[in-house]
């Protein structure tokens, strides 16, 4: 979503993005003229008149599970967004019985918080796990 019109979105997709992504952009490119939606999401830059790089993960109940906001010159890391979604999906599937510690990614162990785990995380989680 950006403040550009849907007509500009079409031109950008047809003339540039479709040369990067085969078949063009697969998801809807939303238009937010005036930044009304960006304003309530807290990421619209009124001085510049554009949205900043806000990224929101919204779960199936419509609840915001996470967000990240960057200034314009630095791009996002899509793998990290996917990792976070996978972690939120695992937690949701476990109905909150499992948690994903720092650096978790699919295949790495989760934690099962409970009275027995208090003070004993160090036995199952090492600082190396925080990194890829």
């Amino acid at each position: 979503m950006s403040v550009d019109s849907i007509f500009v979105h079409k031109m950008w997709n047809d003339h540039e993005l479709s040369k990067m992504v085969k078949g063009g952009i697969p998801f809807p490119m939303l238009s937010d003229g005036g930044g009304k939606v960006g304003t309530i999401y807290g990421i619209y830059d009124e001085d510049a008149g554009v949205e900043t790089r806000g990224r929101f993960i919204i779960d199936p109940d419509g609840v915001v599970q996470g967000f990240e906001v960057l200034t314009p010159p630095v791009g996002r890391n899509v793998s990290e967004s996917i990792r976070q979604i996978q972690a939120f999906q695992l937690v949701r599937q476990s109905k909150g019985t499992e948690a994903t510690p720092s650096g978790w990614k699919p295949g790495k162990p989760t934690l099962k918080p409970g009275p027995d785990m208090v003070g004993r995380v160090w036995e199952v989680w090492k600082t190396d796990n925080a990194f890829d």
Partner: peptide, 14 residues
């Protein structure tokens, strides 16, 4: 609702 949604904002086309 019922699906995971990623909502991304960005400064501008092109």
């Amino acid at each position: 609702l019922g699906k995971w949604v990623v909502l991304c904002f960005y400064p501008g086309d092109f």
